[in-house]
Design a protein around this nucleic acid. Structure first.
Length: 592
DNA sequence: GCCGTTTTCGGCCCGACTGTTTTCAGTCG
């Protein structure tokens, strides 16, 4: 049973309780549990197997007991009983926006809708006959709303179409610079998941401070768009030609901080923050912090004001996921998050050096990479072309190819240094070596003589079972002392491919033991390790290395996205090997 | 039904919007 199915089940229980008129806090409890499960990154089944089901927030004794029965026997008597008290036709209707438990039940009861399979067709027919408007509490508008909801659902547009953080950033930056060109605009910020730097983004929300909202909104609508969805006094929503929705809201300066905080989220962070405020007799909303007894509202111009009003230090948006950040803020021990300026080198890049590679080459010359690194102020870089094709070649032949390659890079490096003023970037000649399905490396041991170090990574057989996969990776990590980095560890491709299934704790234990860095691959399609595993890694004392996996020199700017992931994983500079200056890094790199 | 920096009992986030009402219930984010 997947988390998604489980979350759906819990939602249905909550809806059933709503219909049955249960205690409303019980309903909220099931809703919370459902949402918690939905946003969990580990499988509930697995946590249950490890006896850690209580660690899931919102799941306590009662729900845990039902889940235990469900996982053991495939059934839960209690859940079944609750669900059986509500006509099953209700549940598909809940997926339609605008229809909640009460309305769904009213409809099902009033029209004796018995077949969940045809319920949408039945409702549509009833709307055509204007039967629904006759129902008490419903009207003409309701009919239209329900119809639109069903159409939307059937078109599948409910299924959120997300884009990568990078793509969202491109769009947002264009909109933001467009807005900044208007003289009345004093400040522009991204909101929501974009500001929290989540790996994938739904809608793009932007806020600005401005004097003349009408003019500013008019200016916003001059941004090339397909349709205007909404336009009001304080904002507007448009759909761009690429189908992305962009939402702008205009606010006055006095309450901007409260607004920014509110719309940055996450929802879970805000809920937690509000209950924390409540304990102090305060109430937080997008308008400010209210003293409940006196009713006095403190407007907040900045987010710092708002957090200060609650007795907290400002919390960086990347941390606002309700993963303990409020607790550590209370104690005044928020992490000193890494910044892109802390990075001193990029160890995973591909150049256009032509040789019989097993995967793709890069597009830029190593000189370009060196010069770009120089411009970025880096101390060192690593070139990590893929290992050569191994089929049909002897170990000896591969070693020769690698020897020639090594010599070539050394020559080029000498040449670059000679021709570059103040050249101070060190070059490591690495190789990105495939971890083959059986856990051996795709570079024969003879060839390791001709690399300074190796990044090992998986490029095939992603669907092995957990046990085999774990064994495979550990075997690769321990295959050769020159293995220093485990590249894009989960192999995920955002919005395209799920990551591998592996025992991360075990892998991290080995990485720690061998002092191998786990990579945070900053390539926008990867962002791998994911933020939660990043946090596990630092908690286990595993070192990280943030690399761009550049295949073209300008992609070295992707570093920022890797740093975003790191920040979401609570990473400080000390956790990351490539924040170290040349000599310190070198000692780590060649310690074997 | 969950949960704990005044609590193992007594609370539970906040406000907007919409359509239907004539003061509010339901839904949403």
């Amino acid at each position: 049973m997947t988390n998604k199915e489980l979350a759906q089940l819990l939602k249905n229980i909550s809806a059933s309780y709503t219909i049955l008129g249960e205690n409303k806090f019980k309903i909220i409890a099931y809703d919370k549990a459902a949402e918690s499960v939905e946003h969990l990154t580990s499988e509930v089944m697995e946590l249950w197997q490890e006896g850690k089901i209580y660690e899931i927030p919102g799941i306590g004794q009662a729900i845990a007991k039902h889940l235990d029965e469900l996982f053991r026997t495939g059934q839960s008597c209690h859940f079944n009983e609750v669900l059986s008290k509500v006509p099953s036709t209700v549940f598909p209707l809940l997926l339609v926006p605008g229809i909640g438990p009460k309305k769904a039940y009213r409809l099902v009861q009033a029209f004796h809708l018995k077949d969940p399979k045809t319920v949408f067709e039945d409702i549509k027919r009833l709307i055509e006959e204007h039967k629904i408007a006759e129902l008490e509490g419903f009207g003409e508008k309701s009919e239209q709303l329900i119809l639109e909801g069903i159409m939307l659902y059937e078109k599948g547009s409910i299924k959120e179409q997300r884009v990568s953080l990078y793509d969202a950033d491109q769009i947002a930056q264009e909109v933001i610079s467009h807005m900044k060109r208007h003289p009345a605009v004093q400040r522009v910020d991204a909101l929501g998941s974009l500001r929290r730097r989540v790996a994938t983004i739904g809608d793009i929300d932007i806020a600005c401070v401005a004097d003349k909202p009408e003019d500013v909104i008019k200016h916003f609508l001059r941004f090339p768009h397909q349709t205007i969805i909404d336009q009001g006094d304080h904002g507007a929503t448009i759909v761009l030609h690429n189908g992305r929705q962009v939402d702008l809201r205009v606010h006055d300066r006095r309450r901007y901080g409260a607004m920014l905080q509110y719309f940055t989220g996450s929802k879970h962070h805000n809920i937690h923050l509000r209950s924390y405020a409540q304990e102090q007799g305060l109430s937080v909303s997008e308008y400010g912090v209210k003293h409940v007894k006196t009713g006095e509202v403190r407007e907040c111009e900045t987010e710092e004001d708002l957090y200060r009003a609650l007795g907290l230090p400002w919390i960086s948006p990347e941390l606002r996921e309700d993963r303990g950040e409020i607790e550590v803020a209370m104690q005044g021990i928020l992490p000193n998050l890494i910044h892109v300026d802390d990075i001193k080198g990029d160890l995973h890049m591909h150049t256009n050096y032509a040789f019989p590679t097993s995967h793709d080459l890069g597009q830029s010359h190593v000189h370009d990479h060196l010069s770009f690194a120089h411009a970025l102020g880096y101390d060192y870089i690593g070139i990590a072309d893929h290992n050569p094709k191994i089929t049909g070649m002897s170990a000896k032949e591969i070693a020769i190819i690698m020897e020639q390659r090594y010599a070539w890079y050394q020559e080029q490096y000498a040449l670059w240094k000679k021709n570059t003023k103040d050249a101070s970037v060190s070059l490591y000649i690495l190789c990105e070596v495939d971890i083959l399905p059986d856990g051996t490396l795709a570079l024969p041991v003879e060839a390791f003589e001709f690399v300074d170090g190796a990044i090992v990574s998986i490029h095939s057989s992603f669907r092995q079972n957990k046990q085999d996969m774990t064994r495979r990776i550990i075997s690769a990590l321990t295959a050769h002392p020159k293995v220093r980095i485990y590249g894009h560890p989960t192999g995920r491709l955002l919005l395209k491919r799920e990551g591998i299934d592996a025992d991360w704790k075990e892998i991290m234990r080995v990485a720690k033991e061998r002092d191998i860095a786990m990579e945070i691959n900053a390539y926008p399609d990867r962002l791998d390790l994911p933020d939660l595993l990043v946090r596990d890694a630092i908690n286990m004392g595993v070192s990280l290395c943030i690399d761009t996996d550049s295949h073209e020199v300008h992609q070295m700017e992707f570093m920022r996205y890797g740093v975003d992931v790191a920040r979401r994983g609570w990473v400080e500079p000390r956790h990351v090997v490539n924040t170290r200056y040349r000599d310190v890094f070198h000692r780590w790199f060649v310690k074997t």
